[in-house]
Design a protein around this nucleic acid. Structure first.
Lengths: 247, 247
DNA sequence: CGTTTAATTGAGGAAAGTCAAGTGAAGTGG
DNA sequence: CCACTTCACTTGACTTTCCTCAATTAAACG
C-alpha cells in the first residue's frame, strides 16, 4: 500500500477487444484484481486546465491513466512549432516512453484527475503478470489504430471533410463509451481542434459555418455540436449513413 | 512442431527499447527461447511484389512477422480511395486485429518473405509468457510512435518539407537497423510515396527536383537518394544538422 | 460592467491539385 | 541483341483551395 487507509479509486483502461466480438463499444480491460494490484502502486494526481503533465524529452518516471478530463499530447518541432498528436480521454493510458524518455509534451485540456503509476514497479508487475500485459497490448493496439485514423484524417484534402471526420471520431468515441451520440461534446478549444486537424483557425471556423450552412450540423454554444442530418453528414464523408464503414 | 524436420529461421522483432538506454538503434526483442517457441507455431509464407497479404475487414487469423522485403498497409475509404497507412520492414509485426478483423489491407511492395503466426495459439502463448508479452508491448509502442511521426509528417505544409521528413524517416530507419545512412534506399514507387505523403505525384516529382536544385540531395536512379549536404537538408526541416532533435 | 481572450469574417496571394502532354526506363518478344 | 511496347515518372499551364493578415464580433473572466 502506498498510503495507509486511503483506498483510491481503481484504474480503468478501456479499449476495443483484439480478437473478441464486434460490439463497437470499448470494454474495461482490467479485472478487479488487476485494478487492485495496480492501485497498490499508483497515486492520484490532479491537473488544472492548461497544466503540464510532463514534458517531451524528460526522463519517463511514470505512466498515467486518465480518470476524468481530457489531455492533449503535443509534439514540439525543432523550429518551435507545436502540433497536437492526440487527445486522450478517461480510460486512456499515456506516458509510455521511448528509450527512457517521454516522446510528447502532455497538457491538460480540461481539469484532469489521473492515476500515476511509477515505471519501475510497473515494469516489475508486468513481467510477473501475463494477463495484465495482454490487456496492455490490447490497449496499445487500440491507441495505434487511433493514431492511424488521425493520420488518415490528415490526408483528407478539404478542410470541411477533415472537420467532419473529426466530429465523427468524437461521436464514435462517445458511442464506444456508452454515451449519447446525437450531441457531440467538444472539450477542447477551436484553436486546439485546428491544430489537431492541421488547418488554420480561420479555415476551421469556415468549415463549421459550411457544415451548418449545408444543414448537416447545428452548433449549441461552443462546446456542443448536434448532428441534424446524418445522411447529409455522411454524404460529406462520401459514406452511406445506413451502412457505416468499419474504419 | 508444425512441419517435421523443417527448422525454419526464427522470427525477429525489432524496436527501440521502452525504458532502456538511448542508442538510436533498434534491438532484437526476442530471446532465443522466445524465438524458438514462436517458430514452433509459425509457418513461412512468401508474397511476390503486388500480392495481397490480407484484406481490410477480413477475419484475422494470423499475425505476420516480416523477414525480408517491404509491405504497405492501405486503408480503403468508403469512397474507394486508398491511402497508405504505413510501410513495414523486416523486423516489423503486422496483422493485430480490432474486434477480430484486420484493420488495413496489406500488399507487398517488394517480394516478401514472412512468418505467419496463427492468432489462437499465439494468444494462448502470450497469456502464458509474460516476458514475451513485454516485448510485444515494446514493439507496439514503437509502432505507435511511428504512426504518430507519420501524422506529424502529414501536418507539414510544404510538399518539399514532407518529402524531406520522409527521407529522414527512411534514413533513421536504416541507421536504426545498422545500415549505411549516406545513401537512402527507396523500395517503393513514386506513386506509393506520394500516396503516403498525401500529395500528388506531380508535387512529389517537383519536390524531388527542388531538393536536387537546392543541392541537398542527389538522385541515383529511382531507388536511391544521396544526401549530398546534410546542413542544407537539415535547414529545410528547420533543424540543426549537428544537433538532431530526438523526435 | 469593463477588460481580455477567443472566435469569426473578409480580402489578397501563394501553394499545390488537376489535367494533359512529353520523356525516360523497364520489360517483352522477335 | 535490338526494336517495340508499356508503364512510370516528369514537366507545363491553369484552376482551386487554403493560408496569411487584419478587422470585427462574441464570449469569458475578474
Amino acid at each position: 500500500m502506498t498510503r495507509s487507509g486511503k483506498p483510491i479509486r481503481p484504474p480503468s483502461v478501456k479499449a476495443l477487444p483484439l480478437w473478441g466480438a464486434s460490439t463497437g463499444k470499448v470494454a474495461e480491460l482490467l479485472t478487479e484484481s488487476e485494478a487492485a494490484v495496480l492501485g497498490q502502486i499508483a497515486s492520484e494526481v490532479q491537473f488544472s486546465k492548461g497544466a503540464r503533465v510532463y514534458l517531451q524529452g524528460e526522463p519517463a518516471q511514470a505512466v498515467l491513466n486518465i480518470r476524468e478530463g481530457v489531455v492533449k499530447a503535443c509534439n514540439t518541432g525543432p523550429d518551435g512549432s507545436e502540433h497536437i498528436v492526440c487527445f486522450l480521454f478517461p480510460g486512456d493510458v499515456l506516458g509510455l516512453a521511448e528509450e527512457g524518455r517521454y516522446v510528447n509534451t502532455v497538457i491538460a485540456v480540461t481539469p484532469v484527475k489521473a492515476l500515476k503509476v511509477p515505471t519501475a514497479p510497473l515494469e516489475k508487475l508486468l513481467k510477473q503478470n501475463a494477463a495484465l500485459e495482454f490487456h496492455v497490448i490490447t490497449k496499445l493496439t487500440h491507441e495505434l489504430r487511433s493514431s492511424q485514423r488521425h493520420a488518415l484524417l490528415l490526408t483528407q484534402r478539404g478542410t470541411v471533410e477533415r472537420l467532419a471526420l473529426f466530429l465523427r471520431l468524437l461521436e464514435r468515441n462517445q458511442f464506444a463509451n456508452g454515451q449519447a451520440t446525437d450531441r457531440i461534446f467538444l472539450p477542447m478549444s477551436r484553436g486546439e481542434i485546428a491544430n489537431y486537424l492541421a488547418i488554420s483557425a480561420s479555415a476551421l471556423s469556415r468549415s463549421f459555418a459550411e457544415l451548418v450552412r449545408r444543414r448537416a450540423i447545428a452548433l449549441g454554444g461552443r462546446q456542443f455540436v448536434t448532428l441534424v442530418d446524418r445522411h447529409r453528414f455522411a454524404a460529406i464523408l462520401g459514406e452511406d449513413a445506413d451502412a457505416p464503414a468499419l474504419r
